[in-house]
Amino acid sequence: MALVVSPYMKIYRRFKPHLLMVLAQIGYACLYFITDASFNHGMNPHVFVTYRHIMGGLVMFPFAYFLERKARPKLTLALFMEIFVISLLGVSLTLNMYFASLKYTSSSFVTSIANTIPSLTFLIAVILRMEALDVRNPRGIAKLLGTLISLAGVITMTSYKGPAIQSFSGASQHIRSNFVHKSWTKGSILVIASCITWSIWYIMQGITLKKYPAQLSLTTWINCIGAAQSAVFTVIIQHKRAAWRITYNNDFWSIIYAGVVCSGITIFIQLWCTKQKGPVFVTMFSPLATALVAILAYFILGEKLHIGRIVGAVIIIIGLYLVLWGKDRDQNHFKSQEQPTVISDNQKDPKMQVGSSAERQVLQMDLEEKDKTDG
Rank of each mutant, 00 (worst) to 15 (best):
T147E: 05
P7M: 11
T220D: 02
K143M: 09
S112D: 04
H41K: 10
F33N: 01
A2Y: 02
M43Y: 01
A132P: 08
V91T: 11
P163A: 14
L123E: 05
W201E: 10
W221T: 01
F61K: 05
N40I: 04
P279E: 15
A37Y: 02
L77V: 13
E368W: 08
S263H: 06
S159H: 02
T76I: 06
G42F: 05
I300M: 12
L322G: 04
I165T: 07
K372P: 00
M97W: 12
F39Y: 09
W272E: 13
T283F: 03
R14I: 01
S150M: 12
S38V: 07
Y321L: 07
T197H: 00
L23S: 14
A29W: 07
W325Q: 05
A114H: 06
I316D: 04
V235G: 01
A29K: 01
D345K: 11
T373K: 13
G42E: 12
I256H: 00
S263D: 09
I310S: 03
T208W: 02
S87T: 13
I155E: 09
M55T: 13
A71R: 15
Q337A: 11
L216W: 13
I207C: 08
M365L: 07
K370H: 10
Y257N: 04
A227T: 05
I269H: 02
G375S: 13
Y104E: 08
K348C: 01
S112W: 00
A214C: 12
S172A: 15
D330Q: 13
I149D: 02
P73M: 08
I54W: 07
R245K: 14
R129V: 02
Y98R: 04
G375D: 14
P73A: 08
S254A: 15
D374R: 11
V362N: 12
K351W: 09
G278N: 07
A64E: 13
D36T: 13
S199R: 05
I203T: 06
P340S: 11
V4E: 15
I189Y: 07
I310N: 01
N96Y: 07
A171V: 01
T283I: 06
K70P: 01
L120G: 05
K74T: 13
A171Y: 03
S87G: 12
C195V: 02
I222L: 09
T116W: 10
P118M: 03
G312R: 00
E82C: 03
V362Q: 15
S199G: 05
I236M: 11
W201F: 11
Q270T: 00
R136C: 11
A243C: 04
V126I: 14
M60I: 10
M130S: 04
V260N: 00
L95W: 07
G42W: 06
N44D: 14
G146K: 03
P279D: 14
G264T: 04
A132L: 12
K16A: 09
V282A: 11
S87Y: 15
L216R: 13
I307S: 03
R241F: 03
I295Q: 06
T219R: 14
S172L: 15
